[in-house]
Write a protein that binds this DNA or RNA. Sequence first.
RNA 1: GCCCUCGUAGCUCAGUGGAUAGAGCGCCGGCCUCCGGAGCCGGGUGCGCAGGUUCGAGUCCUGCCGAGGGCGCCA
Length: 574
Amino acid sequence: MPLMRGLLEARLQAAFDRVEPGADPQVRPSERADFQANGALSLARRVGRDPRQLAAEIAADASLEDICSAVEVSGPGFINLTLAESFVVGELAALADDARLGVEPSADPCTVVVDYSGPNVAKEMHVGHLRSTIIGDSLCRVLDFLGYDVVRENHIGDWGTPFGMLIEHLVDVGEKEAVHELSVGDLDMFYRQARSSFDGDEAFRERARRRVVLLQSGDEDTLRLWRLLVAQSVGYFDEVYGKLGVLLTDDDIVGESFYNPLLPAVVTDLAAEGLLVESEGALCVFPEGFTNRHGQPLPLIVQKSDEGFGYAATDLAAIRDRVGRIGARLILYVVGAPQAQHLEMCFAAARVAGWMAPDARAVHVSFGSVLGTDRKMFRSRTGETVKLADLLDEAVQRADAALAGRDPGSDAAGRAEVAHAVGVGAVKYADLSTDRGRDYVFDWDRMLAFEGDTGPYLQYAHARIHSIFRRAGEGLEEVRGRPVVGDKAERALALALLGYAEAVDDTVHTWSPSRLCGYLFALATAFTTFYETCPVLQAADPDTRRSRMLLCALTARVLEHGLGLLGITAPEQM
RNA sequence: GCCCUCGUAGCUCAGUGGAUAGAGCGCCGGCCUCCGGAGCCGGGUGCGCAGGUUCGAGUCCUGCCGAGGGCGCCA
């Protein structure tokens, strides 16, 4: 099924071409009709014609009879397009028979690496990881659905100088005790103590330095301790991912240590291209177009003056590996906004180094910070960063309380699963529904409300539809046939349902799950209006009833599927 | 100091160069005794400021003000 907008545009294109080949019809959603074509205005300007007259000519020339019931010139030269009922009905029937709900696989799928989440070993996962993890998770789900070969990469921080200190602390605490601390998720305490020893104890500092050297040189006992640290942390990450309900598994971990052996090749390649410049003892690349505070070229430090590798080296090695070995034509970096310049510099360096295939793209899917209701960085009451695990537990707890309040007769055991779906769904939806580029305010009461643009609202809408089918004693999938869309609310709902493909398309073009959220909320709103004015089970006649059941079923399917692409589960009862 | 991002209603946010800038929450006043109230209708002197480009600017450009971030050996 083609996108409605695309279909209209294609039909209008022929008429526009006859005036000026390639002129854009500019089909947009309209408040005055279903769609409107704005292209005649700018075209008239270019060819020196009267806009209204030209619009009328194009409207008469375009063959839209089978799609539109009205094609009218309006205002200064807009062409208003109203879809024919027969067309809407036909499309809707096709949608009902389509397991993909109108969303076609990508015409040009490729291998795409999605770099997201990226927690650090022996460090707590906090709200900062929340956004990367769930935005990345949603994008992976959408891309996978569109037929891309999605390679998830969890670029965890599992290498570097801090590990000298962490391993020495592990030795001091004792392996058994350390494993215990880490397994219960007390990662911050472990890290803080290591840090404190490092800062306050010269002997410890020296041991840590030697340990780094041992680690780098592949000392077996040191590696064993390192693996212990990594394994404990990864186990803990998995717990959090489990609570969060994201796709990441251990197989997706491609930490910094993975790239360590690949770093010398980065230096060799860059040197061979003549891109490596020694500056203040460090080996640097100076990508074009980046300057520092004095207007001087800004360096990407590949190898530090102490001959150790900087993080830029790892990031460059990752690009080289992802394009060269994995064959990615697209790399998404779901990373916070502050790293924008660093990533742009890496992308630029990778391109001049020749590691990016000409048609390969690297995209920084950046996002803003999570703020508290005081508009400052989100922190706990005691001013500490909030552990992601605690945050999710609180979400589930609050959801459970909300559910218990709505249905005092329900028992806690029966609520557990739904409370989890609602609590985590609320957190995810609140995050995903805000434009990712901006900071957003984390507010428990708002995100957990059953009214308004929230996860629980959408889940509830979905559950209510299931309740209609339970009452009718029918299954969602049993409803088939051509619907009737005579009523205004029926028609509005039908058009909303037919817009799912475009919403998914929009999401992937902007790398913004917020587009999908906006669509789902609008769909739920359209359904509410429909449900308010159009009796379903008590419809006047069997045909109307069946038709409305079909609209209900489709709405439930789209809601469930759409929420699924956001990584949010939709319970059938709540 | 330079660079980047962001300033839209009381609050939280939508708004792919197009018509009268929209939602949700909150607030006020009505309505619905209907399939699980996710109700329905009405109520608003809002695009930080000033220029510019354009037939048309919240959207593009310039300057200013304000907030956040970045600016060489941390990731």
